[in-house]
């Protein structure tokens, strides 16, 4: 009798597997948590498109937003460029710095992108990809929010929106006070 009921375990055993697959619908494969959040941001110095040195160290003590982008990243980078510019203008007087890092790109294309959106915050090409590896970037756009003490506090994957920018930056500004 015992064996007779045991055989019904066969279909029942399939249930957890099917449930696991169903769980897969809830997983976002683009959303890979960065181990860097909470850790000090790695320093870097690049030469900006304007020809000046662009380094993270120079802005220690301020809230810094580091944005990784590329001219070929359509449409997300094109959607967020005006957002970044707008918020940079709104927050620059409150001690917020925005730095753009152009990765896996050709200088001409990058320059054209900056002109197209009349970006006024500093942007630099990362010619060797070293900065993007240091920040664990796996796609563009990705944006890092760094607090006044130089620690990475949040990472945003995909196009930045006004809401995301303001939420993260306001939080870090409030702490700094």
């Amino acid at each position: 009798m015992k064996r007779r009921s045991l055989r019904w375990l066969l279909p029942v055993a399939a249930l957890p597997v099917l449930a696991l697959l169903a769980y897969g619908f809830r997983v976002n494969h683009r959303d890979i948590p960065s181990p860097l959040v909470g850790r000090p941001a790695t320093a870097f110095t690049l030469t900006s498109y304007a020809g000046e040195p662009m380094s993270l160290e120079a802005h220690r003590g301020r809230v810094v937003v580091v944005n990784f982008w590329a001219s070929w990243c359509i449409p997300a980078c094109y959607e967020e460029a005006p957002v970044l510019e707008r918020n940079w203008r709104a927050y620059r007087d409150r001690g917020v710095m925005v730095l753009g890092v152009d990765i896996q790109d050709k200088p001409d294309a990058g320059r054209k992108f900056i002109e197209q959106f009349s970006l006024t915050f500093p942007n630099a090409l990362d010619p060797t990809g070293k900065v993007s590896i240091d920040y664990g970037v796996y796609g563009v756009p990705e944006t890092f929010f760094i607090d006044a003490r130089g620690r990475i506090r949040a990472k945003h994957v995909g196009a930045v929106t006004d809401a995301v920018f303001q939420r993260e930056v306001d939080r870090l500004l409030a702490e700094a006070k």
């Binding site: 181990p35 860097l36 664990g136």
Partner: peptide, 9 residues
């Protein structure tokens, strides 16, 4: 080094 940047993934 890479795990530190990107995680176990």
């Amino acid at each position: 080094f890479f795990v530190d940047k990107y995680g176990e993934w």
